[in-house]
Design a protein around this nucleic acid. Structure first.
Length: 262
DNA sequence: ATGGTCGTTTCACGA
């Protein structure tokens, strides 16, 4: 089973690329972030014609997540229990959706950006990650053999090697000790970075800013991850970043990350 | 410190 995660930065402006991507790589399950489409705006028809089911969670023009699957799509759940902002009548958030696909519980996650280190959104980001970690820990406690994948745009750079120049990020979000600790807490809880063993080495990034020719110069960041429970980790046979998807006109600022399970 | 480029419900703001 081939699972991919991709921050698509508007699914409506990039649906042709999404359809070409799943066809090119024979993807079974694709989780998307920053779809920027309400549920009623989603361009479903092409994917459905290709044999995929689609579960969307979009409340406004911001955020938005989805699960696309051709190996079943059951028990769809927008948001996770205790997720900050979920169901908020003033500022509702659409940053997580879960579904069971081919026997694996898959979550599409769009972790809050944080904006600035001293911004309230940074506190929100850390609370969001802590709430998710509480759930992730519980799922594994309930069933140590659970097959769970937490995939998406984590907006965290776990190590200095995961960014093109750490000196450029001295007072920035994504690299602070608090964010790195929040990410590491998932590893400590028993979740493994599924792609890293197969996509190692400096310069392996998943995101490049649009401006200043960051992609052409490979000045990027690794912030898109698939974390898996032990039951999933032992099934991984390979992984790669589809760097080509970031090239050319009309690309998202993120590249997809693909993981293969036996 | 600023600005660069994308996206959106665009003449403003988030990433």
């Amino acid at each position: 089973m081939r699972i991919a995660t991709w921050n698509v930065n508007s699914v409506r402006s990039r649906i042709d690329r999404v359809e070409a991507f799943v066809a090119r790589h024979d993807v079974d399950v694709l989780v998307l972030q920053e779809t920027k489409a309400r549920d009623d705006q989603w361009p479903l028809m092409g994917l459905q014609a290709m044999g995929y089911e689609v579960a969307t969670h979009g409340l406004n023009q911001w955020n938005g997540v989805a699960v696309v699957s051709r190996v079943g799509l059951e028990d769809v759940e927008p948001g996770f229990p205790g997720m900050p902002g979920f169901g908020d009548p003033v500022a509702p958030e659409a940053r997580a959706i879960g579904a069971t696909c081919g026997g694996v519980r898959v979550w599409s996650l769009y972790v809050p950006n944080g904006r600035k280190v001293d911004d309230p959104h940074m506190t929100y980001k850390l609370e969001w990650l802590a709430a998710l970690r509480t759930q992730a820990t519980q799922w594994l406690a309930d069933d140590p053999d659970a097959a769970v994948v937490l995939a998406g745009d984590w907006n965290v750079v776990p190590t200095d090697d995961d960014v093109w120049d750490i000196e450029q990020f001295r007072n920035s979000t994504h690299v602070t000790p608090a964010e790195r600790a929040a990410f590491a807490a998932f590893i400590e809880a028993g979740y493994a970075d599924l792609a890293r063993p197969h996509t190692s080495g400096p310069g392996t990034f998943t995101y490049w800013d649009y401006y200043r020719q960051r992609f052409e110069r490979n000045r990027g960041m690794r912030i898109d991850f698939l974390l898996g429970t032990p039951a999933v980790e032992q099934r991984v046979t390979g992984a790669f970043v589809d760097r080509d998807e970031r090239a050319g006109t009309g690309a998202s600022d993120h590249a997809p990350v693909i993981v293969d399970l036996r």
